[in-house]
Design a protein around this nucleic acid. Structure first.
Lengths: 136, 136
DNA sequence: GTTGACCTTACCCTGAGGGCAAGCTTTAGC
DNA sequence: GCTAAAGCTTGCCCTCAGGGTAAGGTCAAC
């Protein structure tokens, strides 16, 4: 038995092993993150351990909030032996700034909303500081 | 000249006054937040001061991150003289919890990403702690 | 041989709009 | 009065990262 063939798995197995869904894996292939997977005679996609590793990479990057386009760039650098870590760090810092900005926006919302909620009695009366605050 | 008619404005004027876009205003009407606007003989939408106030309310609520569905509920309470401020506060606190959770998720991403970025030299070498971290 | 689990593609759906096209209306300038 | 520009209308497709479902082919166990 061929040890290379032995490690091939179908998309469902790949999904289980990576924590992705089969739908996501097909989507990433469609989006160009992965090369087109090899197929069985019946048309089933097959993944080897290297491709599973790439899927794991994508999963981690998505968990950190990178967009598909950003992951495409990251994968390009990952595969490029002539990359510089400077390029990778730049990409990461761009994304870090996006995250920080979103956090700031949400915290601003949270602050205002908390103030409104704190000033609302929350009783049976119709008078409501939250509605008043939205009306301004 | 009729003082009631005098205050009617077209969608472009309404957009300017509320800080929304004409597209958003049509979208809110389509989504059922607003009653269908009255039209001129030529089919142009017309808004009176009360409707402008409602648009302002929607704008404020969107700024605080409420979804269209949530705003629909808020507007229902706003228009209901028999509302209780308890209902409004409950809606607000549900949304507040959503915001807090998103902030927590983003801060977790930020933390991990910052650690990775900090441990990456960012130099000319291909070795990169960020890529290593994503590969795990 | 049949049942159930797995795979395939293709299509529509999400939220909150943006962008564009084609055509009608109103307004401003001359 | 004419014309050009600006404003309005509807309708359609696009975003992002997938989820859901349908219709149909395939594989393994019993």
């Amino acid at each position: 038995m061929n040890t290379l063939v032995k490690t091939l798995v179908t998309i469902g197995q790949a999904a289980k092993q990576t924590g992705l869904s089969a739908k996501m894996i097909r989507y990433y292939e469609e989006a160009g993150l992965l090369l087109k997977a090899n197929r069985t005679d019946a048309g089933y996609r097959l993944y080897n351990s290297q491709q599973l590793q790439q899927l794991g990479f994508i999963k981690q990057a998505r968990t950190l909030g990178f967009s598909i386009a950003q992951i495409s760039s990251l994968l390009g650098l990952w595969r490029d032996p002539n990359r510089s870590s400077r390029e990778v760090k730049q990409l990461a810092e761009v994304h870090l700034d996006e995250i920080k900005q979103k956090v700031a926006e949400l915290q601003q919302m949270q602050k205002v909303l908390q103030q409104l909620a704190d000033s609302c009695c929350g009783d049976d009366q119709p008078q409501c500081a939250i509605l008043d605050g939205l009306q301004k």
